[in-house]
């Protein structure tokens, strides 16, 4: 069977201990926050950190709390906890829809929200064993110098494959980082960079500790995902929307995010801007879908043809907006995503 390389395992019991351990050698440490992404990558020798710092026993990071104006989700909260949380499933439906479609029930029982937000970018030339990568002469992301997705590309084109990030970005989430030198908080969208290798703005000595999501009365959110099967598969396209309307049905606040269309999830504010101040009518939805379409730039490094993945942007944006409008799209959801409800 595939086996992990050797490493030093550190099991801190508190956040301060974890930060101290990380501070000691950030460049050679990886955070084990669930490990369902990291460990397979290590088994394929895509990553071979000398030290693993497990957050399993750091209780502070496993808290999920809500106050009058926000939800606070600790970085180590398991996906399964989010998926089965009753308040979240009504108020942050888009997030719960996204999380409950990540991988499989088993993986969601181990994986954490922080881990999914920091998910390594993916590519069919990269998510392969060491011998396979050797047989193509490696690639830019690991041990090589060519991006085989587009051989003239100056940067790595590996694709952001987190489902949670677009959902949380549409919901206006902020993320907190802790390091030995202190705490900082940024909008989630600022965590990501459009580079398959340097896809996170997080410093190696920082831990993603908390996600803060504002509560907006009457806000509705949804997440639609394209993939071949109803489980296991990473997104080939993720569309997250959050819309708040006034009593007359006029859109007060809107946000859209696309996942799996570039090396980072993208907040498409120009599309959202089209909706604000308007009713959420068929025409507005059509315009939003048209506007989102050119922003998606899928590449040939994952399942399904890139033209199909791009073509589906319009369809998924439309479905997601119709869902937050209140249309019954459950049959479409069932057909496309094979999910219940």
């Amino acid at each position: 069977m595939l086996r992990l390389p050797e490493f030093q395992l550190l099991l801190p019991q508190s956040l301060s201990e974890a930060l101290a351990l990380l501070q000691a050698d950030p460049e050679h440490s990886s955070i084990l926050a669930g490990g369902t992404d990291l460990l397979p990558n290590m088994k394929r020798r895509q990553q071979t950190p000398a030290r693993l710092i497990s957050l399993r026993n750091v209780k502070e990071l496993g808290q999920l709390t809500l106050s009058a104006d926000e939800f606070c989700i600790g970085g180590s909260v398991r996906l399964r906890t989010i998926e089965t949380h009753e308040t979240l499933s009504t108020e942050l439906r888009g997030l719960v829809q996204a999380v409950s479609q990540i991988a499989t029930v088993h993986i969601r029982g181990t994986a954490t929200i922080g881990g999914n937000l920091c998910l390594d970018t993916r590519c069919e030339y990269y998510n392969q064993s060491q011998p396979w990568r050797q047989s193509i002469g490696f690639c830019k992301k690991k041990d090589g110098d060519i991006c085989w997705v587009a051989t003239s590309s100056p940067r790595c084109l590996a694709v952001s494959s987190t489902d949670a990030a677009p959902a949380l970005m549409a919901l206006g989430a902020q993320v907190q980082f802790c390091s030995a030198s202190g705490l900082r908080e940024i909008p989630l969208s600022a965590l990501y960079q459009n580079d398959g290798i340097h896809y996170l703005s997080k410093r190696p000595d920082e831990l993603l500790t908390l996600i803060r999501i504002p509560r907006r009365a009457g806000q509705r959110s949804a997440y639609w995902k394209l993939r071949r099967r109803g489980s296991f598969d990473f997104p080939l396209l993720g569309v997250a929307v959050a819309v708040q309307r006034d009593e007359a049905g006029t859109v007060q606040h809107a946000q859209l995010a696309l996942g799996a269309v570039s090396s980072r999830p993208i907040l498409v504010e120009e599309v959202a801007a089209l909706l604000i101040g308007q009713p959420l009518g068929d025409e507005q939805i059509r315009q939003a879908a048209e506007a989102a379409y050119p922003l998606a730039k899928p590449m040939d490094h994952a399942d399904m043809s890139l033209s199909y993945r791009k073509a589906m942007v319009k369809s998924l944006v439309t479905s997601a907006l119709r869902e937050v409008r209140g249309d019954d799209v459950s049959q479409d959801r069932q057909r496309l995503m094979r999910v219940l409800g």
Binding site: N127, W132, F232, D303
Partner: peptide, 29 residues
Amino acid sequence: FRRLPPKLSSALVHRTPSILEYKSLTSLE
């Protein structure tokens, strides 16, 4: 399979030799 651009490489590899990317039906399909 993936044939890399012949000008740059003679590689011809199985595109996705994994049970994740070689797609088979789950109980949902």
